[in-house]
Design a protein around this nucleic acid. Sequence first.
DNA 1: GATGAATGAGAGTTCATTCAT
DNA 2: AATGAATGAACTCTCATTCAT
Lengths: 201, 201, 201, 201
Amino acid sequence: MSKTDKRKKVLAAAASVFSTRGFHQARMDEIAERAGVAKGTLYYNFSSKSKLFSATVTEGIDEIIAKIRAQIDSDMPFAEHFRQLIQCNVTLYLQYSDLARIVFNEVSSGMDDEILADIQTARARYVDCVADQLKDGQRSGHIKDVNLRLTAVAIVGMLDNLCNHHLRDPSSVGRDELVDLLFDLLSSGLTRESKLPSNFD
Amino acid sequence: MSKTDKRKKVLAAAASVFSTRGFHQARMDEIAERAGVAKGTLYYNFSSKSKLFSATVTEGIDEIIAKIRAQIDSDMPFAEHFRQLIQCNVTLYLQYSDLARIVFNEVSSGMDDEILADIQTARARYVDCVADQLKDGQRSGHIKDVNLRLTAVAIVGMLDNLCNHHLRDPSSVGRDELVDLLFDLLSSGLTRESKLPSNFD
Amino acid sequence: MSKTDKRKKVLAAAASVFSTRGFHQARMDEIAERAGVAKGTLYYNFSSKSKLFSATVTEGIDEIIAKIRAQIDSDMPFAEHFRQLIQCNVTLYLQYSDLARIVFNEVSSGMDDEILADIQTARARYVDCVADQLKDGQRSGHIKDVNLRLTAVAIVGMLDNLCNHHLRDPSSVGRDELVDLLFDLLSSGLTRESKLPSNFD
Amino acid sequence: MSKTDKRKKVLAAAASVFSTRGFHQARMDEIAERAGVAKGTLYYNFSSKSKLFSATVTEGIDEIIAKIRAQIDSDMPFAEHFRQLIQCNVTLYLQYSDLARIVFNEVSSGMDDEILADIQTARARYVDCVADQLKDGQRSGHIKDVNLRLTAVAIVGMLDNLCNHHLRDPSSVGRDELVDLLFDLLSSGLTRESKLPSNFD
DNA sequence: GATGAATGAGAGTTCATTCAT
DNA sequence: AATGAATGAACTCTCATTCAT
């Protein structure tokens, strides 16, 4: 078995355990066991629990971003394109929900500053990816002149919270409903379409 | 000193420590020290670390909800009212940012299921509070027919992510900008103003 | 059982284990077991293995120094007094040989700098104690004008090496022989008595 | 590269690392790295860490002894000869201070008995070397009738402690001062020269 | 002869929890 | 009601040693 094999196995096991338990509750023992290697092997490949966590997050998020970029087809009408974007993000979020939980929900506290920075960088790359998608729409005149980065932050927040809501109780709301809501909200906001701005008060 | 006094002191200290360190990194020792009581006193008032955490979160979130409800003045034009709502939520989020971090970012993993349920209930109460605010707008015909609960979830997600973005680097984006973006996005979405809501005020 | 009791028990067990195994080979488990307390109790009383070691050495060496000072009777002819001094140091060294081994032989490497400094300070106190003894002899005119501190260092070196030699193989040399050699060497050196210093070549 | 080449490289690296860190703190990894060989090569040449340590010490001490024997010139007046002897030992001790630290200060505890015996044998060879030097002086009538082995033990003790004192704080005492003190002490002891042995009381 | 990835027993340390006072 | 000394299970990390190549 090659070096790469064990490293990959460890990363996969780490993603699984960190997602289930969170960083602090994850035990290196369990990761080793699930990877089918000895505990020392974890430390042979990653110098600490924090570094393993960091690698798990970074490599995972980059995989997701690559998939998003690969799945986008911009040669269709904007509305359809935009809906596809949302759909794609929702689908990947739900598919990688364990990783997503790590990246978006456990970044706040009690970790080495260095590692924290790595993870925030990974998060930022995802936000940038979303912002890039918006930029295309802005260039083509379909999206108005807003602070794209900030808007991307807001979108990711919605995505995160909505998807978690769905995951906590899948029966309460379907995946399609999530996509519809996001599309609707992002397209035209909350105000009644029939009510013209003139008498919006 | 009455029982209630010490209990309150403990809760205040717990809020402070849990906020700073997060649940798993918070130490009962530090909470006791900051509360100025012996460690045993913590266990005299709360049966476990989890219960103390739960109480901290629950009582904190209820305090915030009460403040939001108290600050809303619905006797003004809707647009102004809506903006005030957003402003109020942003302000309170930033003010209680430590508590917010706990409630919205560390709920996911590695905690007793029972406690987790308590905290998710507290979260749900906040979401309900936001949904209630929307409901008023819907009743008065200013907000269109959307799934309010889901929309509230989305809004809270945006709020959370945007405020954290601001807190991580206050110089990158001002508080007012947050409010403006939220108001704009929620009012009319991302599509160009030329598309109808042109004279939206 | 009072706090002091357990602390003392731990120190005694630590002295025993550190002496037998040396610092790096001593296991906290064994110290706890020998003290009849839980491992956590070690850390409740001493913040780390190093600190426990430091306390063991410091408190031990101070006990020895106190005994030396108590046993000296300076109201006798100098030669006798001097021999008594040597006898007293040899006796105490052999009696506290475990501690002595720690203080004089394991100070060199692989320890926290802070702790190392503590131990060197303890060593220095012992050297000072010997130097003080010499000073009296110098004041009374019996000891010539030499660098007392340096001489004390040399004497402690002899004492250490000779006593260890005796301890390694007690049958090869008796305790009295050690005292005699030290007395003879320190009194008049190695040169033949018949040869007066004047024509020493 | 021949087997002997790598073996020598390993021994040199081992001396360097063991000296700096001491036996227990030295890591095989670091020795291998410093030797520029793989870790397995260490075990290919030496069956264990202890054996490697033993070989390092034994070969090192023999090198020193050979140098001492080579540097002695006995065709000069005794006093000068004796001073030269002391000077030579001090100089070599300081030059090989790392090895000396191992041999004289870390031999006591926490090592395999077998290895411990090897090292004590090496020490004994050094003591014998010093004793041999004294024997010449005794044969020529310059040194009085003392237990030479024991005296050599005492001298090595002084040498060790004084040199370490110098190494810990070179500014406090110069190398020449060490030699002078040793020469003076060994020649005529501590008593005032004016006081003849006859009325030494 | 030489390698270095892999191992796993064992180390120091932490900290929520208990209970005699 | 309140304490805090004591606990011990659980944790991360180390490193001498092995063995397939």
